[in-house]
């Protein structure tokens, strides 16, 4: 099944640009709803791959398959050298510890302050002293552009801020892959732009693999090294932003045209 040899090596042995995550003929359904119908897709190491497509096409499902929150009926999901659906719990945990995730609405724990939220994975996984954890939290908050809010409650934050704190929590364990679930959903255009530039900046700072799930075309072209489009459970197109822009795939053209109508679109003209 694993026809991608590089996918079986450990993360750091994989050269930049070679696939660190590989989907091979993945099928997933819920009841009689067939969501993914045979997806094969590579996510190159050290790049930002954006998965686009209309809602309900299984973009989020792909993400949950990568971390083993869902299990496919058929097919392999290779992450580094591990086939996640078959992995024993120990291997699955080690995969998860190398992955951080920014959730759509933050998924911050309501009962903890922002700082405790970010410190949570460190407290559970490391033996760092409180002072060190404190410094790490402050640093992470600075990285996402929200210094000094560690004492606040998550419920007191705006949607965009919750996403940023979620990102801070995701990167505090220094993961090798960071996943973004709909980073632009529910945000006004200005905040949306800020999040996009934050993703680009983080990409430069950290130099690790990013995976973004989005239906926001503008944001996609602003951050992507590679774009893949899902439609009706199939992969209809994948390639560099340039290739996607010039693709003749009719569904992709329709999806782009609908969104490209927006007047303010930097770099949209081919």
């Amino acid at each position: 099944m694993a026809d991608s040899p590089s996918a079986q090596r450990p993360f750091d042995a994989i050269p930049d640009g070679d696939p660190v995550i590989s989907f091979r003929d993945v099928h997933k359904s819920f009841g009689d709803k067939h969501i993914l119908r045979g997806i094969s897709l590579d996510f190159p190491r050290g790049r930002t791959t954006v998965v686009i497509g209309p809602s309900g096409t299984g973009k989020s499902v792909c993400m949950k398959l990568i971390v083993g929150l869902l299990v496919p009926e058929k097919g392999d999901v290779w992450v580094g050298g591990t086939n996640v659906p078959d992995a024993p719990e120990k291997d699955l945990m080690s995969v998860r510890r190398r992955i951080g995730m920014m959730f759509q609405d933050g998924a911050l724990f309501d009962s903890m302050s922002v700082g405790d939220n970010i410190a949570f994975p460190l407290r559970r996984h490391t033996k760092l002293r409180e002072a060190e954890i404190h410094d790490a939290v402050d640093h992470a908050l600075e990285q996402v552009g929200l210094p000094g809010i560690a004492d606040r409650a998550p419920s007191a934050l705006s949607g965009g801020m919750r996403k940023r704190v979620s990102l801070a929590r995701a990167i505090i364990t220094k993961p090798e892959i960071v996943m973004f679930d709909e980073p632009n959903s529910g945000l006004d255009p200005l905040t949306s732009d800020e999040i996009d530039s934050l993703i680009s900046r983080m990409k430069e700072e950290l130099g690790i693999t990013f995976i973004v799930i989005s239906h926001d075309i503008v944001g996609t072209f602003a951050v992507a090294d590679k774009i893949a489009m899902l439609y009706n459970g199939h992969l209809v197109a994948s390639g560099s932003p340039d290739e996607i822009l010039h693709s003749e795939e009719p569904i992709l053209r329709r999806f782009l045209a609908r969104n490209m109508d927006l007047p303010a679109l930097p770099g949209a003209k081919p």
Partner: peptide, 21 residues
């Protein structure tokens, strides 16, 4: 509520078992 707001998923992604947590 934690299930609804994906907080249980978040705990799992952090490689922590939500049942023990």
């Amino acid at each position: 509520v934690m299930r609804t707001k994906e907080q249980i998923d978040a705990i799992e992604v952090m490689a922590i078992d939500p049942r023990s947590e």
